[in-house]
Design a protein around this nucleic acid. Structure first.
Length: 696
DNA sequence: TTGCGATCCATTTTT
DNA sequence: TGGATCGCAA
């Protein structure tokens, strides 16, 4: 193995001989390289590949790590056995391989959409209370999941999420008021899950974690199957994941890599005290730091460092560029998102034709998946090839879920959500009819009985039954099952999606069929795609065309890097978002880290674009302060979330306020100048005597 | 009860 | 922009 490419601190970590290690690695300091080298080092020193488990946040990064380790050992079988997966996929695997410990191996995994359907069903019955508390099913679901991931009880969760963590009398009263409702919804939800044999994402971790914690024998048996657990993106782990990991402390060496400044998943319970408290919580552990940045030029890091330094939190981070200096980061100002997107696409095209850069050297980062649409529009128009990371994946699209629902029924006939979706898909069957049918169906014990029952009903469309019985024969060949289901359902689907069935939707199934071919049972395939709806499509499309610009949400961009990077819509009200300002300090700080992650993706050139309302906003220092005062008074007048600790954070209403001019080049085009100045009429005013009825 | 059309609505981030 | 929800006709 070649570890010459490691610097001293990296090498120290890679060759660590003690038990547990935390590596605090700033952006671009070779975090992934270190974890890959660690795995390779262990294997080269005789550790069995299958006794090493790499855990990461997305499957994309997990499989990339495994691949790169493999490529270092062309002919070693040890490396081939290396395990790499997400926490969820790993736990699912533990559940499946130890059915006698966990007793849930025949359950169906449900994703957020399915959870939401159940919550809606439960809330539907007492929607009046929803009006009083203004809690939607989606909010309730998020609250539930947050509580489970953070291991908090309902009261504390409500206090934290809705009451700014205040414990005064008003807050306590409010908790007393809404808690019974939450408790009843959550109880219903958990009962429903048990009844229908569902596991949601949180269950997967919880079941394993609780099993290991409470059953010493099982813990010993399972944890002794591994020698080393390598955790990537440690700052994104939540208390539940920590609980799970801590069960492995005794028998395994933990090697955790993370960066607190890149923690951007607090909204789903990530807690960077998993990083901060590592030393005190884990006996027999050490902490190393990596601070040399290999990715970016110093100018890009100066801007990133500056951003972090404005925070009231002390990240104690100052990245140093080993590459030296380069181009200054540029701030581009535009009058609206279309001009902004147009400029990005023109700039990329120019680089491509003039400077000989490839499309793949460009990365466009957006705050929300939604925000990329203007850019996509111009890419299509200018025929710039691109791929999108983040947001709603293929697997979440309606037509795929339709066909998947048929497969899910055959895999688990108690899957009420799947029945509901599948039955109502057909004409003349709505919620009412479907509910009645489902009531009867759920009493049956196998798919054949279900089909028989459906045959006795006077259903308008025989394809409904045909599809199910066709799939049944391909239980062990998911790919064929999809093909056959599609052919029977196509009439109905093309009717439902008449506008874009054959051009847009139908081709998606080719991908699905290809994906399914890797699996040997329907159930296995379903579980797989529920656990990872994103990656699969991306790696299939990946090798189709390498020459592509990447559009990504910042959250999906961890680990990505690019020569040229556009961070778009870094505007007032977007960074931080209004929403996070309402929520308070922690949310605002998380937004800051989101921007930090975005800025540190750039290797050579960084363009921060933003939309401004008036020509004055173009100025970096002065007018934004005025703007900030205005925002501040707006917040005060809303006064929904008045609390003491929010006050000290309020002055941070726009991250680029008071950005020192020497850190960036601030640019505006004449076109934008004109567009903005024409917004405000500064000419002569019509006098009163110039209009009115002619009295003569 | 279903299905269509119109209107309104809001719009983070993801395993 | 399109997604979800509401109201009305068949």
């Amino acid at each position: 193995m070649n570890i010459d490419k490691l610097n001293d601190s990296q090498r120290k970590a890679v060759e660590y001989k003690g038990k547990h290690l935390l590596v605090l690695a700033g952006a671009g300091t070779g975090k992934t390289h270190t974890i890959i080298s660690r795995a390779a080092y262990l294997i080269a020193n005789g550790v069995d590949g299958n006794r090493i488990q790499i855990l990461s946040f997305t499957r994309k990064s997990a499989s990339e790590i495994v691949e790169r380790v493999n490529s270092m050992f062309r002919d070693s079988k040890d490396a081939k056995q290396l395990n790499g997966s997400t926490f969820h996929a790993w736990c699912m695997n533990i559940i499946k391989t130890n059915p006698r410990v966990f007793k849930v191996s025949d359950y169906s995994v449900i994703d957020r959409d399915d959870q939401l359907s159940i919550f809606k069903l439960i809330c539907g019955r007492n929607s009046k209370i929803i009006e009083e508390t203004r809690l939607t099913a989606a909010t309730l679901l998020d609250t539930y999941s947050f509580a489970r991931n953070t291991r908090k009880n309902v009261s504390d969760t409500v206090r934290l999420k809705f009451l700014n963590n205040s414990s005064d009398e008003n807050a306590n009263k409010e908790i007393e008021r809404i808690k019974p409702y939450l408790v009843s919804v959550f109880t219903n939800y958990e009962a429903k899950k048990r009844e229908r044999k569902y596991l949601d994402y949180d269950d997967i971790l919880d079941v394993v974690s609780a099993g290991l914690k409470n059953n010493k024998e099982a813990r010993n048996y399972i944890t002794s199957q591994y020698d080393h657990i390598l955790v990537d993106e440690m700052q994104d782990t939540n208390p539940l994941q920590w609980e799970l990991l801590s069960s492995f402390q005794e028998n395994c060496c933990l090697f955790c890599v993370g960066d607190d400044a890149q923690s951007i998943y607090a909204f789903r319970g990530a807690d960077f005290s998993n990083v901060h408290k590592f030393g005190e919580r884990v006996l027999d552990s050490e902490t190393f730091r990596l601070e040399d940045n290999y990715r970016s030029t110093q100018e890009i890091l100066d801007l990133s460092n500056w951003l972090l330094k404005q925070s009231p939190l002390n990240y104690n981070k100052q990245l140093r560029a080993t590459r030296g200096t380069g181009e200054m980061p540029v701030i581009m100002n535009f009058e609206n998102e279309w001009r902004e997107a147009e400029w990005v696409s023109c700039d990329i095209l120019e680089n491509y034709t003039k400077d000989g850069l490839g499309y793949e050297d460009h990365l466009v980062l957006v705050r929300s998946a939604f925000a990329g649409r203007a850019v996509e529009h111009f890419f299509l128009e200018k025929k710039i090839p691109y791929r999108v990371f983040g947001g709603v994946g293929l697997m979440a699209s309606a037509h795929i879920r339709d066909v998947a629902s048929a497969l899910r029924i055959v895999a688990n006939i108690f899957d009420e959500i799947a029945w509901m979706r599948y039955l109502t898909l057909w004409s003349k069957i709505g919620d009412q009819t479907a509910s009645k049918l489902i009531n009867e169906l759920l009493d049956l014990s196998n798919i054949d009985d279900c089909i028989e029952l459906l045959k006795t009903k006077d259903l308008k469309n025989p394809d409904l039954i045909k599809t199910l019985s066709a799939i049944k024969y391909f239980n062990n060949n998911p790919s064929e099952a999809i093909r056959v289901a599609l052919s029977v359902m196509e009439n109905q689907l093309s009717y439902i999606y008449k506008e874009n069935w054959s051009q847009k939707r139908k081709p998606d199934f080719e991908i699905l069929i290809k994906l399914a071919a890797k699996h040997s049972s329907i159930n296995e395939f379903i579980t797989e795609y529920v656990l990872d709806p994103q990656l699969n499509e991306s790696y299939l499309k990946n090798d189709e065309i390498k020459e592509k610009v990447t559009i990504s949400t910042v959250h999906s961009a961890k680990g990505l890097e690019s020569k040229i990077c556009y961070v778009i819509n870094v505007s007032v009200g977007a960074f931080p978002s209004k929403r996070s300002m309402d929520e308070g300090g922690d949310a605002v700080e998380e937004e800051r880290r989101v921007l930090y992650v975005a800025l540190t993706r750039a290797k050579d050139e960084l363009y921060v674009t933003r939309i401004i309302d008036t020509i004055q906003d173009y100025d970096l220092s002065v007018t934004n302060l005025q703007k900030q005062r205005k925002e501040l008074s707006d917040i005060d007048s809303n006064e929904i979330h008045v609390s003491t600790n929010i006050a000290e954070y309020i002055p941070i209403t726009y991250f680029l306020n008071e950005l020192p001019g020497e850190l960036v080049i601030n640019q505006i085009s004449d076109r934008t100048k004109n567009a903005l100045s024409s917004k405000i009429y500064t000419g002569a005013v019509i006098a009163e005597n110039e209009f009115g009825i002619d009295l003569s």
